[in-house]
């Protein structure tokens, strides 16, 4: 578990991060969301000590990070940034091998690990191993960046606006990839984003930050249905919250017995997809692949504020 205790960082007398305490559970994705200048990036960078806290502590597995040599600490924590920052003079394989090389792994083991990661991110090792970063598309470079951060099997991965430079299609794909990899590896991840949509898509938990403080830290459905402050409510956007909420659950959990007309919807489709399909095809119920139906009435009941 990662525990942040009363973290404060002051720049020129102004607290950028102000007495933040936060518990990040293992094996989950925690999304830090907020506007620019909310202190979310500074908070993230205090975890791997790219920024030293003015006061407060960061504990990883019960150990204070302040007591450890900083380069050794960082080799155990994956780090992905918006610009990706691949080393332009190194091949894809050499980039991914950065931390294993720093740790002195045997070359054969490094080679095997590089190929394993390239496959994990659906990049054919034979094709991509020897490419140089300038020969990659934005999405490919971003995946290599995440692969590089995961190379030495860190227990914790920090991501700072990792998909900020990608177009909408590339971003959706990268988000799905990250979700899949996280499910597969069980790595604890802390993701900084200004995009509430991304936070809802990826976060098992969301921490909303403003002016250096955490306003609310909870599961996405709680943040959506029960925002703690007007700021959190504004960040979600009243026009979007019903759809965000529907996007969190799959059709699978809402299936009821019955018969419905028309083409079936996949079981893993989100409720948001199901609603869109109902509206578009003018049906009140959709058959679900593998049996059962999902009804418009059930979707409506799901997409509303929590009862007082």
């Amino acid at each position: 578990m990662i525990e942040l205790r009363h973290l404060t960082r002051v720049y020129a007398g102004v607290p950028v991060v102000d007495d933040v305490s936060l518990n990040v559970p293992e094996g989950e994705i925690t999304a830090l969301v907020g506007t620019s200048g909310s202190g979310k990036t500074t908070l993230l960078r205090m975890i791997n000590r790219l920024v030293e806290p003015t006061t407060g502590q960061v504990l990883i597995g019960g150990q204070d990070v302040a007591g450890q040599p900083v380069h050794l600490l960082r080799r155990r924590i994956g780090y992905v940034i918006q610009g990706v920052g691949l080393f332009p003079h190194h091949s894809v394989a050499r980039n991914i091998a950065t931390v294993p090389r720093l740790l002195g792994w045997p070359p054969a083991q490094i080679g095997a690990r590089v190929d394993e990661l390239l496959q994990l991110f659906q990049l054919d090792p034979a094709t991509f191993r020897n490419r140089m970063p300038h020969q990659l598309s934005g999405g490919q470079a971003q995946r290599v960046g995440v692969a590089r951060a995961l190379a030495a099997r860190p227990d914790l991965l920090l991501l700072d606006e990792p998909f900020g430079a990608l177009d909408a299609i590339g971003r959706a794909r990268a988000q799905a990839d990250l979700r899949g990899v996280q499910r597969q590896l069980g790595t604890t991840m802390i993701l900084v984003t200004h995009d509430i949509n991304e936070a809802v898509q990826l976060g098992d938990r969301i921490a909303v930050m403003d002016h250096g403080r955490i306003l609310q830290h909870d599961r996405p459905e709680r943040i959506l249905t029960d925002p703690a402050t007007p700021f959190v409510q504004a960040l979600i956007g009243p026009g979007e919250r019903a759809f965000h909420l529907l996007s969190l659950s799959a059709v699978l959990g809402m299936t009821q017995p019955g018969q419905a007309q028309g083409p079936a919807i996949p079981r893993e489709a989100s409720l948001r997809d199901a609603l869109a399909e109902c509206l578009w095809s003018g049906r009140d119920a959709l058959p679900v692949e593998g049996g059962g139906i999902v009804t418009l009435a059930a979707l409506r009941a799901h997409a509303r504020q929590a009862p007082e």
């Binding site: 791997n48 380069h71 940034i81 610009g83 691949l86 080393f87 332009p88 931390v99």
Partner: peptide, 26 residues
């Protein structure tokens, strides 16, 4: 580029490694 420097430090290079493996070659 700044992201390259940041990535090198964030991945756990010492100052010497940053200079020898990244900054000077570039």
């Amino acid at each position: 580029p700044l992201p390259v420097r940041e990535a090198a430090l964030g991945l756990g290079m010492t100052r010497g490694q940053l200079l020898a493996q990244v900054l000077i070659p570039l």
